[in-house]
Structures are given as structure tokens and as C-alpha cells.
């Protein structure tokens, strides 16, 4: 099993770099996962990451992009609930990339 080093802690990740145990996640792990994706985290990024973690906590699932966009729009307003905004933050796909940084499994239906 591959691992990722976060401040001296060895966290297990799968072959695509997704965190195995989401309870091990913290901001430092998020930063490290973001680095592996080449994403520089800003408050706007964290806002989406926090949203994703809350969503997962409630529904036990990482949302599909379409659902994520709609739900973000509802919570954070229409200027953020659109794919242009989310793809600017996470160029390789908000669901896939943001979920990885949030320490969540790959969204269901994501190839």
C-alpha cells in the first residue's frame, strides 16, 4: 500500500492517491493532497473542500459534479454554483480533484 507523509504521519493512499481512511484527514493532509494535484489552496478552495466534507458526513457519498454544482449554488450563491468557477479552482474536475483533496473516495460513477 502506498503512503503519503504528512508532518511525520504516514497516511495510506490507494493507487490513485486517494486517502484510504477519511478519519485521518485534517487540513495538513488536505494541503499535502493538494500539492500532489498541483493545486495551490486558497480560502475559496477550502470553502469547497469544507462543503464536500459536510456533504459526505450527511449523505455518506461524494456528489457527482452536476449535484455538487447545484448544491454549492444553493449554499454559497450562484456566482460559485457554476462549473466555470469550480473548474477554475480545480482544473482537473471539481468532483474528482476536490474529493481527493478533501480525503473522500472518488465520486460514484467517476471513471
Amino acid at each position: 500500500m502506498a503512503t503519503m507523509n504528512v508532518n511525520g504521519r504516514e497516511l495510506e493512499v490507494d493507487e490513485e492517491g486517494y486517502l484510504i481512511d477519511l478519519s485521518q484527514w485534517d487540513r495538513a493532509a488536505g494541503e499535502e493532497l493538494a500539492k500532489s494535484e498541483g493545486v495551490e489552496m486558497t480560502e475559496s478552495h477550502w470553502e469547497v473542500i469544507d462543503f464536500l466534507r459536510e456533504y459526505y458526513e450527511e449523505y455518506q457519498i461524494a456528489p457527482a459534479v452536476r449535484v455538487l454544482t447545484k448544491a454549492i449554488g444553493k449554499k454559497l450563491g450562484p456566482d460559485k454554483g457554476n462549473s466555470k468557477y469550480l473548474y477554475e479552482l480545480f482544473p482537473y474536475g471539481p468532483a474528482k480533484q476536490a474529493c481527493k483533496i478533501a480525503g473522500l473516495p472518488k465520486p460514484t460513477g467517476c471513471i
Binding site: E58, Y59, Q60, P63, V67, K70
Partner: peptide
Amino acid sequence: MKNFSNTYKALEMY
């Protein structure tokens, strides 16, 4: 085990 009963609540959003 995974508690996927909460996921049924997300169906509406899908």
C-alpha cells in the same frame, strides 16, 4: 460497515 441509509436522502438531489 458503511451506513449508506443516509445516501437515500441524496436521491432527490440526483
